[in-house]
Design a protein around this nucleic acid. Structure first.
Lengths: 242, 242
DNA sequence: CGAACCCTTGATACGCTTCAACAAGAGTGG
DNA sequence: CCACTCTTGTTGAAGCGTATCAAGGGTTCG
């Protein structure tokens, strides 16, 4: 096998506290909400209504059709969105790595969650009850903007992935994924199983393996187990472009 | 050829007024914003800030990278979102048929529009300046909900199309498209060119033609030029399901 | 050690695209 | 009016991209 890295505690859900009372750092709120620095009143209001959940690998975060009463965000770790089928394996479509919003949309609609979500390893998730959030929004004008920006970013990101699925082949999507994941850096540690990466790219693990080899043969990347280094980011960007 | 229907005035843009001063009906606002009936104050405020644009076939509605200062909606007609390439043909990805929101997200971000948009035939588009909208939102609590619902619906719709592109083949996507487009009815008039339908399904016109024949041979639909009747909606739903 | 899991590689099969040809309206101009 | 062109949809043959199936090797765990 590869030198291994992602060790997703194959046992699945274990007895987790489910909800801890640790506070959320101001810097975390800032990372999540963005915009101008949060003032004390905002932080106080947020910390008063927030619910924190510490999850272990595989723990469910959202369940389809369940009523959605909270805005959800990932603080630490990663959460996978997709479909849980009665048949065993969870089908992954997208993963959110904290700190970032996980689901800002379901709570505003009356239909419950549209997807399932599972913690990918140890993760910390926070939930803001929509009812309380609504009253906060009516007082704090800035908070509205922050939320709108979060929701808008989700829209643009989803538009992008739809576009990629329509027009880019597997190699292009992989190149784009690597670049986005590296965040400008040139060395990159894959923290998840390769089959999960493949699922997000909507290809099979076999194809992912072949595409990695392709990029390696072209001299664009170097692969050693779960660490990938981008040898020619410019060429990769070129390749990933439509 | 088929008995023809969609006649997109091949000449493209013609001299349009660009902006007319007709008012927007209360029923249109309601269709767009949903929720509890809009009161007089809300309608007044909206009508005061709204900008109405009457567009002829092919006229640009959004242009990539252009600053986005308005929330956009389609009142009448249809608008296509996609990419305009320096090379001639506009590549369609999604179409919005009025009355419905066209773009609620770009204005909140500082990066301008992420896609191009073109009127697909005669269309009427309305624009709400974000600056004015922001102050309205701080006064009218209900309006916030309506907007959030609109944005959330966009998110869920995009999540759905991404899911379909990942997991459904051409036949399934076509079946799903037909069902959604029929809106429960059994007879269905295609108002657009079939190649545009194909583009939205991310397949070639040739494949669309073949898939139509497939469904016809299976006795699920009947096709006569640009009118399609769904003979077995239940079976179609079954086919379209994952 | 064997069992379970992961990644890789190769052979084959299938879905869809691409390319080419054709039929049928629509617009144009003689 | 007809001939001509442009555009659209349809059909068939060939080819590419990716999935599927099967086998093998590596690592961890009991």
């Amino acid at each position: 096998m590869d030198s291994l890295q992602p060790q997703a505690s194959r046992s699945g859900i274990d007895h987790s506290p489910g909800r801890a009372c640790a506070p959320v750092a101001g810097s975390d709120w800032q990372a999540l909400l963005g915009g101008p620095p949060l003032n004390g009143a905002e932080l106080h209001a947020l910390n008063q209504m927030v619910e924190l959940r510490s999850l272990s690998a595989g723990a469910p975060v959202m369940q389809r059709e369940q009523p959605a009463l909270h805005l959800l965000a990932v603080l630490r770790g990663a959460v996978g969105l997709g479909q849980a089928r009665h048949d065993q394996p969870f089908h992954l479509e997208r993963t959110v790595r904290g700190p970032a919003w996980l689901d800002l949309s379901s709570a505003w609609l009356a239909q419950g969650f549209a997807q399932d979500a599972r913690a990918q390893g140890e993760a910390q998730v926070l939930a803001l009850p929509l009812a309380a959030m609504r009253t906060l929004l009516s007082h704090e004008a800035l908070m509205l903007d922050r939320l709108m920006v979060g929701l808008s970013r989700t829209v643009q990101s989803l538009t992008g992935t739809a576009h990629d699925l329509m027009h880019k082949d597997a190699e292009k999507r992989l190149a784009a994924w690597l670049l986005q994941r590296a965040e400008g850096d040139t060395l990159l540690q894959l923290g998840e199983r390769k089959r999960d990466i493949a699922a997000q790219l909507a290809i099979t693990p076999e194809t992912l393996s072949r595409m990695m080899r392709q990029l390696k043969l072209k001299g664009l990347i170097e692969v050693q187990g779960y660490s990938v280094s981008l040898l020619a980011p410019a060429a990769l960007r070129q390749l990933a472009a439509d």
